[in-house]
Amino acid sequence: MTTRKIIHVDMDAFFASVEQRDDPSLRGKPVAVGSPSGRGVVAAASYEARKFGVRSAMPSVTALRRCPDIIFVPHRFDVYRTVSRQIREIFLSYTPLVEPLSLDEAYLDVTENLRGLPSATETASEIRARIFETTQLTASAGISYNKFLAKLASDQNKPNGQFVIPPAAGPGFVATLPVSRFHGIGPRTTEKMNRLGIHTGADLRERDLGFLQANFGKSGGWYHAISRGEDNRAVTPDRPRKSSGSETTFEHDLTTPEQVEPPMLRQADSVWDWCERTGGRGRTVTVKARYSDFRIVTRSRTLGSPVNDRETLHQVSLALVRSLYPLRLGIRLIGVTLSTFEEAEAPETLLDLL
């Protein structure tokens, strides 16, 4: 079986870097893409801001507290999409096996690259150089024999660097890392693993499959594999999208149906606009609400056939949100998601939270 050559390319602070590229006055300064309002969220932070501990998905008030001099700029998704397409074209000139994860990162299988370059390392270097030549933006890359390790490797020499994990080094590399570094293992799972005495990849590898399945269910098999540097997933171009969702956080809590329903319908409109652009159609409608005490509730309904018009999506969404009345507390966030797709194009991936 041929050993795969996988590259994970990750743009460096993509949204913020685009803003610094297009506005020279922002270069060298701490920049956050997002809104500085009380309930705004940081969509991206420049490396200058990251030095102060500012991260994406952080509340804007926290970012301002950590870095009082931070400069907030509004997002420009049309520009980010355009740049993302330029980068995608570069990828496709090396391999048809490109799996986008978001606007700013993707896996590439270059086991057989279109340019006949002798190594994945050389291929990654050339791709990064072409990205900079085309967009004036830097990218980092991880190179390895599977997707899990390639993604880990891309973080090693950020920004504007690359790192290789060859097959012989994979298990040893994983063994040295804290489990919190493994993508797919979030804070809660990390805490649970720590309580069980699992702090590093080496600790994880010491637990047998039965133990991991007993404590982590279906994910136990995945944890067992990655602790040994194993990941057999192929790079899959044009992954079918499993859902389309949109949500927003409000400046002030919504406390009445008259306040809740209009913004919820705007979220439904955003979802339907995506469906119109891509031809995606789903059967399951989900409404999500976060109360002022941060408790999250969801209501879902799966229809017998796909939602085929905006009005149906509106009607189902309204019925779902009305099942929450009377409101137990004010609502600070509302969202609508359409899933169980019958047929959909690959996503032009975007952070639906923004």
Rank of each mutant, 00 (worst) to 15 (best):
162 Q>H: 15
199 H>D: 02
156 Q>W: 10
155 D>L: 04
159 P>T: 05
195 R>P: 02
199 H>R: 13
215 N>I: 03
241 R>N: 08
227 S>Q: 00
105 E>P: 12
164 V>A: 06
166 P>M: 12
238 D>V: 03
108 L>Q: 07
173 F>A: 06
149 L>G: 00
164 V>R: 07
130 R>I: 13
209 L>I: 10
233 R>G: 05
232 N>R: 15
106 A>W: 05
111 T>G: 12
227 S>T: 01
231 D>C: 02
111 T>L: 07
180 S>H: 12
125 S>A: 15
131 I>R: 10
141 A>E: 01
104 D>Y: 02
240 P>D: 12
175 A>K: 01
154 S>T: 09
220 G>T: 06
180 S>V: 07
167 P>H: 14
117 L>E: 03
141 A>T: 02
243 S>I: 07
139 A>N: 05
246 S>N: 12
199 H>G: 11
128 R>P: 00
130 R>L: 15
164 V>G: 00
111 T>Q: 13
176 T>W: 08
104 D>G: 01
202 A>E: 05
210 G>I: 13
104 D>H: 02
185 I>C: 02
141 A>D: 01
202 A>F: 01
220 G>A: 10
216 F>P: 03
166 P>W: 13
212 L>M: 07
205 R>K: 12
138 T>Q: 04
125 S>G: 12
168 A>I: 13
188 R>T: 12
237 P>K: 10
156 Q>C: 13
202 A>R: 03
170 G>P: 06
204 L>F: 00
198 I>F: 00
144 S>F: 06
134 T>K: 15
110 V>N: 04
151 K>M: 09
243 S>M: 09
104 D>M: 05
129 A>C: 13
230 E>V: 15
124 A>P: 01
238 D>K: 14
207 R>Q: 01
236 T>W: 07
234 A>E: 11
232 N>E: 15
241 R>E: 13
184 G>Y: 08
188 R>I: 14
208 D>R: 08
139 A>G: 06
210 G>M: 14
146 N>P: 05
195 R>E: 14
212 L>P: 03
139 A>K: 01
135 T>E: 10
212 L>C: 09
111 T>S: 14
211 F>N: 01
176 T>H: 12
120 A>N: 06
159 P>D: 07
132 F>N: 03
104 D>A: 06
